[in-house]
Each structure stands twice: as C-alpha cells, then as structure tokens.
Design a protein around this nucleic acid. Structure first.
Lengths: 186, 186, 186, 186
DNA sequence: CATGAATGAGACTTCATTCAT
DNA sequence: AATGAATGAAGTCTCATTCAT
C-alpha cells in the first residue's frame, strides 16, 4: 500500500475535503476514513480538528505565498503579471468548482475563539495585500500611490472571488481583471 | 403568558443568530431556547431549518431591497448616494460586529442541494447588481457604460464587505468608497 | 367540495392508510391532512388515535361479518363456498398489495394495554372461527366434528394469509385452498 | 466498570425488546438505556436501527436453523419429530408470552424499502418451508408428495403461531399439531 | 362544528474527543 | 505509532394531544 505517512495522508485528505465542502461541513470521521487512519492516530498528530484546520491553512498559505513571490520576482510588465494573476484565478475557480477562497470560507464558520485559525487568515490576507501593493509599486514606482492602488486591487480580487463563488460563473473575474488593469495603469 | 406569536419570535431570533454566527453554526435547539418556544412549535411554522433560513434571507432581502429602492428614487446626486451607501455599510458593519453579508456567509455553508437558499442568494445578488448599475446610470445617463461601471462597483462593494468581515476593520470600506466615487465619475 | 361529513372522511382515510401501511406507521397528521380536517375536529369525533383504530376495526368487522353471513346463508355446497372464500382471499390480497389481515397486523403493534383494540381483534377472530365451524357443519352435519374441522380450516386460512403477506405471493393461498377442500370433505 | 463489550449487550437487549414488543415499538433510547451504553457506542457497532434489526433476525435465524437441523438429523420417526416440534412451539410461546414469530411481526412493520430486513425474513421463511418438506419426505420417501405435504404443514404452523399470538392461548397449536400429524401420515 | 397555534416527550443520528490496549 | 471501542453533548425532526378562539 502507498502509505507514505499517516500525518501527510491526513493533511492531504483534509485539504481536499475542507476546500471542497468547507471546514464546518467535514467531520473527523470522514477524514480519517478517507485517509485510512485510526481515530487515535489522528489525535497523535493533531491535537484537534481546529489544529488540523490551522495546518491546512498554513500549508495552503505556503504554497500560495510561493506563487505570489514567483510572480513578483519574475521578469516582465506589472500589467501582464496582473492579467496573468486573474487568469490563474479563473483556472483555479474552474478546477475547484467555484469554491472560492479557503480563508474567507473558513472565516465565516470559525468564531473569534479560534485564535489559531484567525491568525492564519489574517496572515494570509496581509500577504495578499502586500502582493497587490508590490505589483502596483512595480508599475508606478511610487510607494505611496502603490499602497493606495494595491488596496483597491485587493478589493477587486476579493469581490471577484466572492461573487464568482456565489454565482458560480466567471464574469466577476473578467470584470475585475479589466478594472484592475485600468486601475494599475492609472 | 405573553407569547403572542411564536413564528415571529422564531424568525427574529434566528435572524439574529444566523447573522451573528452563521447558518451552519446555529442549531434549532438554540433558536427555540432563545425564542422560548417548543420544538414542535417551530416545525409547525417552518418545515425545516433550511426553510427557516430561506424565510430569514427573504425577510432580509425585502428590507434591503426597500432601502436600495429608497436610495435610487431619492433626489440628489448619484455620487452622494454612492458615498451614502458606503457610509451606511460602515454603520452596518459596526452594528453587526463585522459579520458581513448574510448571503455570502450562507452561500459558503449551503450546498447545491439547498435550492431554496441558493435562489434567495442569487435573487439578492441580482438586485445588488441592478442597484449599482442603476446608480451608475443616474450619473452617466449611458446605459451601456452604466452596466460596465455598475459591475465594477458591485465588486468593490463585495470585496469591501468580505475584507472588512475578515479583518474586522473598516479600512476596506473606506478604500472601496473612494474607489467607487472615482469610478462612477470616470 | 364533496365533504359529506368530517367524521366519515376521517374514518375512510384512516381505514385506507391503516390498512396500507399499518396502524403504527400512520400518524394523526397524515390522516387529518388527507381527510382535509382540522386537528381539533378529529378529537371532536375520536378521543384518541387508539379509538379511531377501534372504529376502523369495528367498521371492517361489520363489513366482513356481513360477507361471512351471506356466504353461510347462501344456497349451495359447502365445498364450493369454501373454494369461493379462498378465491376471494386471493383477490383481496392482490387488491391490497398483500397487506394481509388488519387484525393480525394491528395486534402486532398494539400492546396489552390497548383493551379496546384487543377486544375488536378477539371478537373478529371468534367470528372467523364460527364461520369456518359453520361451514364445516354445513358439509358434515356433525356438530362435534365440525368444530374440529373448522378450527383446522381457520389455521389454514390464517397461515395462508400471513405467509402470502410475507412472501407477497399467492402460492400459500392456493395450498391452503387445496388443503381446506381436502379437509372439509374428510 | 464491568462493561466488557457493548455490542453484545446491545444485541441481547434489542433481541429481548424487539421480540417482546415489536421492532417499531422499541426505540434506540430504550435499548441503550437498558444495555447501559452511550448512544454513540450504539452507532459505532450498528449503522442504524434497521441494521440492528437485521443483526437480531440473523442471530435468531442462526439459532433457529441449528435447532431445525438437529431435528432433521436426529434419529427417529418423522411423526414424533413433528409432534416434538409443535410441543417446542408451545413451550416457546409460553416463555415468550405469546409474542409469536419475530419474522412475521417484523415484516408487518417494515416496508419494502427495508431490503435487508426483508431478505432475512424471506430467507427464514424459505428455511422453514424446507424444514417441513424435509420432514414430510422423511415420512413418505416421496419427494413430490413431500413438497405438497410440507407446504401444508408450514401453513398449519404459521396459522397456529399467528392465532396463538392473537388469542394468547395454546389451543391453535394443539389443533395444528393434531392436523399436522394426520397430514404427514396421509 | 371548525380552526390552527402550541406543546412535552421522544424519535433517529452525528459530533469531536478520550481511553485502555 | 497504531488501534477501535466508548462517550456526553448536540444535531434535526415527529409524535399524539390540548388549548384558546
């Protein structure tokens, strides 16, 4: 059997299920069943469902962050990078059947008391904000203006992601892409 | 006993709790306990938790729609109306402890099989879209351009609402307000 | 609207549903809903679900008894009457989708405490016993032997009814018919 | 605490209660309460009330089948075996307070959709039929005649069981015993 | 006679977690 | 490191019945 590691199998399974159906809608039993692990093996590796959620968000964030860094550090025009980013978002939405942003989705169902989860969400949001600001800076070279523009880009991205998830259609991303390109060019 | 009508009490209680903590995180037991009703009384009036959710969304939509209509039909500059709308959004977020949009929040935790809920969400989204397009039209007088601009306004609004909910801060709304005003004026 | 009488509509509806699905599997709500009556109208006419059940069994018994009496009092050979009875049983089972004997079915789900129901069941069973004994007497003219034979006929009938209901097939009735005819002729 | 295995305790308790009062009249709460188990422990071992019912019927069938096999394989006259069988039935009815056949009783309250339960019932019925046919064959040595006679024996047994349950008296079994002995001897 | 809102008790099932092995 | 039985609390929903109108 291909069982590289129980912990990894759990994280992979949870990532898939949490993303597909949402943190609150997936139970521990389903996760360990699909991951082919025993109940107590799960609690050996993760102290609670909540901590598994944190691990998932952290893992997702690491991968996301690497992609954003790659975009920032790549050669080329900031406008092209921005267009590229929204194109990737479209692919992502199609592939994930319009499940939208894992951080927003998780935030909706986790209360204030889930401090670990909230930290992951806020960290990720801060990174997204930095990303758009940096992109705006690459275009304008003006730090102050870039903050201004970057935040607007973030809102377009966020709105597009949310609305696309809701209507299960790509038009919000197309609108956001056009608006973002207009915005970053002045 | 002063319990004139259980149905209203249930809807009021559910509206509050669903909005505060999310549809999936609030149980029937909690609702009937706070509404001081018997469980069977609940099911006399609502055939299921899902149908109660639909009633809540419908009720919310009616109130929201009335407000949007009032704004549209009011005298005055579209720019002022738009600014006013975002100011109201700020008040709303403060009062609701940054719980954001009930429709988005509910959409995240209700699957495709909840057709009634999804219908309410899509209806509301369509109304919001019309609202922003109409506002844009009042400013420009150009129907085609208004559709274009209106959709962008919707994304700014949606992004602001989502991000404010996540970071529990008003800055996204301020950014969106400024961006929206720039946008509607060309 | 064709509403001859609420009480009758309730009894008709209950008769149909109790027979089709069993006393324990049919709720008051379903009955009044199909009978188009209000809840309290039901309790106006019947003091409880149990008393409705008694009324149903009594009504069924009256009709059944009339049929049995007609057979007994008819002209003709007892053997033919017996064959005829089992043929009717076959028709009945087909028409009722093999729901079997209402009295047995109700007895299974009603405890000792349901004295009214138990009385109806015992009354009906006594009538059935008399019927078969009388039929046997018509054939043999011997009272003592008829009691003996009649009870055996009853068991064949009861077994056939029960087994046909279980396997949802008519073969038990065919077997019982043949056995009964052999039996009554010596 | 002396609670070695909950699964067995649950099955034992359910067997007793289902038999005494009927599948539909006994709830999970009562079972786990008498078995001194937590509700979730129940669902660890049985996926549903229905599956517990299947386990009960299967268990009952195994025990029943062993007894029938022992009778068939024993030395001695078929007539004696048959008489013995009906004597056992009398003991059984007395001990179980005339609750009759678990399979018939369960069949009455479980719909077509309970495929697992129905399968158990039909399997058991087929075994009973085989048993009586085999007994008849041991007496006559004629396979064809044995099928004929065996089926009649089955009806007598079934009718006796049903009627004894209804009238809570042994006379139907005595009648059936006499009829069966007459029948198997020609 | 009719109405329908209200009810307490209970139905079946699932949750995340712990514990003895 | 792994196992799976055991658990208390909570989940959604239905029952037969009563009451004020």
């Amino acid at each position: 059997m291909r069982k590289p590691n129980a912990k990894e199998r759990i994280l992979e399974t949870a990532s898939r299920l949490f993303h597909q159906r949402g943190y609150s809608e997936v139970g521990i039993n389903e996760i360990i069943s699909e991951a082919q692990t025993a109940k107590a093996s799960f609690y050996q590796h993760y102290s609670s469902k909540e901590s598994l959620c944190e691990a998932w968000l952290e893992d997702t964030h690491e991968k996301s962050d690497a992609r954003l860094k790659a975009i920032i550090e790549a050669e080329g025009d900031a406008v092209d990078k921005l267009a590229d980013y929204f194109d990737r978002l479209k692919s992502y939405l199609i592939n994930s059947e319009f499940r939208g942003c894992p951080y927003n989705n998780t935030g909706v169902v986790s209360g204030e008391e889930c401090t670990g989860i909230r930290k992951q969400i806020l960290d990720h949001k801060a990174c997204m904000r930095s990303f758009f600001r940096e992109l705006a800076f690459q275009q304008s070279g003006d730090r102050e203006k870039a903050e201004f523009t970057g935040d607007r880009l973030l809102l377009l991205y966020s709105g597009a992601s949310t609305e696309a998830q809701t209507v299960k259609d790509l038009w919000p991303v197309d609108i956001a892409k056009a608006a973002a390109i207009d915005l970053i060019q002045f």
